[in-house]
């Protein structure tokens, strides 16, 4: 059976080293510009260091350039992508066609992964982006297991699936928290960043806390639960999914490293002996459950949900 890549996010260089040590085959990071919802922002200098380090360790480094672009963002884009190319990163993660066009011109040798932000939910569209130069699809979170497996069977490019962590549910260009605070007449205390740890609660769902934050890309609302597929890996591995992603946004480095360790163990276990894996899967899940921050349940997200419309 094919061994899938275990991909993890990292907020900074220390966490990057930590997740690689814990068994990640590849690391997803954001730079100072153009990155959506990455746990940290690496300077170009740090990206160069990270690229050299991952290369030395036989791991890969992917850099998110996946924001929705406006005209003014285009000015610095060619130079930024060239610098990433020179730094030796292993892939660019994009969602705006402007990045695809610029990357094809500036750094044709660097693989292009398309981000879930591009909202692609069928095989024909995935293969369309493949024909335009993408080599990997990070699948939309709202796909279910059946669709994921079918997609993998028919796709002409690598398929990446998020198996653990927080998911984005809503992205607006507007500053919705600032607007609310202003409406309330507050003129101080306006930290609305990720670090402030703000959340919203819907009237009828008292148990769920949806993190919300603002950055220069607008407002992001995140899932109240963390997806966790550690006890459902067999289906994904049997299907031959190419990359399994652990997203550490809003988590400590310790948490992220431990989660990566658990997935490393689970994947290796399944590949060596599926029966052992099945026996230990629920134990692995319990391990992760014990690590969960208060009030953040684990979930299987959209994997086993039917959507209607």
């Amino acid at each position: 059976m094919k061994k899938p890549e275990l991909l993890a996010t990292a907020a900074d260089f220390d966490e990057l080293k930590g997740v690689i040590e814990a068994g990640a085959d590849a690391v997803h990071i954001g730079g100072e510009k153009y990155a959506l919802r990455t746990p940290g922002r690496f300077s170009m200098e740090e990206i160069r260091t990270a690229a050299a380090y991952t290369r030395e360790k036989g791991a890969k480094l992917y850099v998110a350039v996946n924001s929705l672009m406006h005209n003014e963002d285009l000015d610095g884009l060619p130079a930024y992508l060239s610098e990433l190319g020179e730094a030796g990163v292993d892939a660019i993660v994009f969602s705006d066609p402007a990045v695809l066009m610029t990357a094809r011109a500036e750094i044709p040798e660097i693989p292009l992964h398309f981000s879930t932000e591009i909202t692609t939910t069928n095989v024909a569209t995935i293969n369309y982006w493949a024909s335009r130069g993408a080599s990997r699809a990070d699948l939309a979170r709202e796909l279910n297991m059946e669709e994921i497996i079918e997609t993998k069977e028919q796709a002409n490019l690598e398929i990446q699936v998020q198996v653990h962590g927080i998911m984005c549910m809503f992205h607006s260009k507007r500053d919705l928290v600032t607007n609310y605070l202003t409406h309330r007449g507050e003129d101080r205390d306006r930290d609305t960043s990720l670090e402030r740890r703000l959340f919203i609660r819907e009237e009828k769902r008292e148990d769920y806390k949806y993190p919300i934050y603002e950055d220069d890309h607008g407002t992001h609302i995140m899932s109240a639960e963390d997806v966790c597929m550690i006890d459902h890996l067999s289906e994904l591995l049997d299907a031959g999914i190419d990359s399994l992603k652990v997203d550490g946004l809003m988590k400590s480095a310790d948490y992220q490293i431990n989660v990566v360790k658990a997935y490393r163990e689970a994947i290796d276990l399944y590949l060596e002996n599926p029966v052992d894996y099945e026996q230990q899967a629920s134990e692995l899940r319990q391990q992760l459950e014990a690590m969960q921050p208060d009030g953040r349940p684990l979930t299987t997200g959209f994997f086993f949900k039917e959507q209607i419309f």
């Binding site: 929705l68 932000e117 709202e142 549910m169 992205h171 039917e306 959507q307 419309f309």
Partner: peptide, 15 residues
């Protein structure tokens, strides 16, 4: 951003 929202999918399973 149009389309960049799964609140409805999440709350009511309506895509």
């Amino acid at each position: 951003y149009s389309g960049r929202c799964v609140l409805s999918n999440h709350f009511t399973a309506r895509d």
